[in-house]
Design a protein around this nucleic acid. Structure first.
Length: 497
RNA sequence: GGGAUGAUAGCUCAGUCGGUAGAGCAUCGCCCUUUUAAGGCGGUGGUCCUGGGUUCGAGUCCCAGUCAUCCCA
């Protein structure tokens, strides 16, 4: 055949050039390599479910998807096609298709997107298969897919070219399907509880609501600096002042800090506020919320990560005070020790200490470095030192503590929750102390969010509030070891410069 | 910021003592009408991460750097 001779002469060097030649030849034959609308297809999953084995009549099927395997056996061709719901085998031969169509069908490649029509049958090996009577090329793939058996394993490439990871690795795709099912359930739950989803600024004139370094940018029209939000808290509280009683915001926060297995510079958080509630209200809410999601998405409260690690979400969850949990680790006399003894003992326990650390810092170092990662089963750690949490109400029986919890699951902080501070005089004092201490994330020029304080001075109802780290929640529920496995396009260093 | 490990064909990976760059898959050609990681035969395909150095000769040894993974701070 002259066509073949021509191709040999051209001697294409790589797959892309070969495909380019194929595309040009298709176009020359009036076949569109990048086709158009192809409607009326069923999901492969539905085709499988509705197939009836013991009936005589033909059972037609139409599918659209990507070719994942292509096995040519002379005059007979088996292929696998994959859509969002699954995979099914295709069978074609030179009798079912016209000579021209069969010739064209033979030129298809793994990776091409095609539309298929045909009747269902069962092969000798017992596999449900579509006998192709008609097909349409919907998109020619110009580049080869990764290796069919091993898939794409290179982690860097899986993150940089996530679409290949999603095509090749079903486990990876499943995690993201679960991610978005979890988020849908979360919204459904809050909706049913009469919470209103709101949107507040992500671009803020000053960053507040958390201790973290913000991303800074510049707004040309106003010629002033702007910050990507590190938390929506201070705006949501303004809404409490404004009379919204049950609100939540589910969106991205940005923190200009390091990346790790547990940190991405942008991450998703839901913050929930309920007027006239408190810390206790929030503990009950988050228990119910997480168990409902687990039950609805996974059908179980026992989340197995490995043979050694299963997280049991059965209520009620353990509640323990911050002091108790530290004493469990550092000894019941820990809080009676002098600062120098604490430093000494901290060193023995294996944390890094220095002489400038305060009592509270060294205790918190013990908590963060030695305790947090051991809290695998759901645990509410309550009653934290006031200095650690500038936006929460003090405990009535002990003004050195605040009425808050940190929910720890899977060794990570999943959700902090507070009885929100609504005393504007106290709030101003706390902000000023923060500035004086030079806390991380506090504006260096000592600027305080006066606008927020003014709002609170108009009267903010007592309220319970909490934030749930969605990425970590999803890691916990799906068993993912890295935040990069639950974020579709995680941050990486740009490849070329 | 420090340490360990890695980077070789589009993908998954070998590469011995420093001596002509390899396999499987993919791709192209031929054979093959029930295969399914199809099979058989033959081809195409390489900035061995980058830049230096040692050497007659470097994928391999040395130095510096880039990117990634894990651990530590």
């Amino acid at each position: 055949m002259s066509d073949n001779n021509k191709e040999v002469e051209v001697k294409e060097e790589d797959i892309f050039s070969q495909r380019l030649a194929k595309v040009q030849e298709l176009e020359a034959n009036d076949i569109k390599p990048f086709g158009e609308k192809f409607e009326g297809s069923s999901k492969i999953e539905d085709i499988r479910n509705s197939y009836k084995e013991d009936i005589e009549e033909l059972q037609p099927a139409q599918v659209a998807g990507r070719l994942m395997a292509f096995r040519v056996m002379g005059k007979s061709i088996f292929a696998d096609i994959k859509d969002s719901s699954g995979r099914i085998q295709l069978y074609a031969n030179n009798k079912l298709l016209s000579a021209d169509d069969f010739k064209l069908y033979k030129t298809l490649n793994v990776g091409d997107i095609v539309g298929i029509e045909g009747n269902l049958f069962i092969t000798q090996k017992g596999e449900l298969t579509i006998k192709v009577s008609n097909f349409k090329l919907l998109s020619k793939s110009m580049r080869p897919l990764p290796e069919k058996f091993h898939g794409l394993t290179d982690v860097q490439q899986r993150y940089r070219q996530r679409y290949l990871d999603l095509i090749m690795n079903d486990e990876s795709k499943q995690v993201f399907q679960q991610r978005f099912a979890i988020i849908r359930e979360l919204r459904k739950f809050l909706e049913a509880q009469d919470f209103l989803e709101v949107e507040t600024p992500m671009l803020q004139p000053m960053s507040g609501g958390a201790a973290a370094t913000p991303f800074e940018t510049h707004y040309n029209a106003l010629n002033c600096p702007m910050f990507m939000r590190i938390a929506p808290e201070l705006y949501l509280k303004r809404l409490l002042v404004g009379g919204f009683e049950k609100v939540y915001e589910l969106n991205r926060n940005f923190r200009n800090e390091g990346m790790s297995r547990r940190h991405n510079p942008e991450f998703t958080m839901v913050e929930i506020y309920q007027a006239y509630g408190d810390c206790q209200t929030m503990m009950e809410l988050v228990e119910e919320l997480v168990t409902t999601i687990a039950q609805n998405v996974f059908g179980t409260l026992k989340i197995k990560h490995s043979d050694e690690k299963t997280i049991d979400l059965t209520r009620p969850w353990r509640r323990v005070t911050y002091k108790e949990v530290i004493m469990e680790k550092a000894g019941s006399d820990w809080f009676e020790l002098s600062l120098s003894d604490k430093i000494k003992k901290g060193k023995e326990l294996g944390i890094h200490t220095d002489d400038k650390m305060t009592d509270i810092e060294i205790s918190n170092e013990i908590y963060e470095k030695l305790i947090e990662s051991t809290l695998i089963q759901p645990t509410f750690v309550t009653r934290l030192p006031e200095q650690l949490v500038p936006l929460a109400k003090k405990c009535e029986d002990d003004p050195s503590l605040v009425d808050v919890f940190e929910l720890e699951i899977n060794g990570q902080e999943i959700a902090p929750g507070y009885s929100e501070l609504n005393d504007p005089i106290e709030q101003r004092k706390r902000f000023e102390e923060q500035v004086k201490r030079g806390d991380e994330g506090v504006d260096e020029s000592g600027k305080i969010d006066e606008d927020f304080l003014t709002a609170m001075e108009h009267g903010m109802p007592p309220a319970g509030g909490m934030g749930i780290g969605i990425d970590r929640l999803i890691m916990m529920l799906t068993g993912a070891e890295s935040i990069r496995d639950v974020v579709l396009f995680p941050q990486l260093r740009p490849k070329n410069q």
